[in-house]
Amino acid sequence: MDVTRPTSLDDALETLARRRAVPVAGATDLLVGWHEREHRPEPLLDLSALRAELGGWRLTPDRLELGALCTFWELRCAPQVAAEFPLLPLVAAQVGSVQIQTRGTWAGNVANGSPAADGVAVLMAYDAQVVLASSGGRRTVPLDEFYTGYRRSVRRDDELIVALHVPRRRHLREWFEKVGPRRAQAITKVGAALVQFEQGWRVVANSVAETVRRCRALEAALDAGRRFATPREVQALLAQDISPIDDVRSTARYRGTVLARIIYYWLAQ
């Protein structure tokens, strides 16, 4: 097993500059069915020794900064974060189970790029930014511009996600709901995160397209003050931005219908 374990971020970035490697943080996705896999990703870049530089979270005057190794559990235990960004601990409590939350990282959720990623949906609805670092420097990419296709992103092979930045703004309304096959340990069938800022709405859906994505048609309608008389009206707008599929977990019909229904009923409250 080819594993490199850098002891500093600079080390890690130098390694990536020289050769391709798969960064590993909490490993809760990487290790699933580990011994049954025919081919395992290699080489690996183990980030777990970089807590000093990449761990934890902090609040600055204009944003919440999540280090790359910040886990879901850490935000469940952060009342300061809960006060200002209530969707973060809310979604954290619904990812897998406690045993997954203590290991899984927000940055790992982003890097993994699953279209079902609940953490990504909420971060995107909060207008999060992804901070990428390489031995050549840093850049910041808005999360809603980070993905280019199914499990593909703008991250170059020599880059690491080092932080996620979430702007501190006034939220007028905010909400997240995950629909899964059971109430824990569930891969999302369809999920929605909605945040109304003073500047406008963000509507983000997961498990209904190749990537987690904003539903801009519905955002525009909400920004224009549109109200909805039935879920079908919401569904018609959503249809412009989503393309749910049938798979072993659910159906396109269910996903499209239910996404619209949960949003409709929440808006109607």
């Binding site: 490993a27 809760t28 290790l31």
Partner: peptide, 19 residues
């Protein structure tokens, strides 16, 4: 396979030995 790692519950089947 739940064990406590640095006092926190984890699934031991998902923790690589090298960590």
């Amino acid at each position: 396979c739940t064990v406590l790692l640095d006092g926190q519950p984890v699934n031991a089947c998902l923790v690589p030995a090298f960590q």
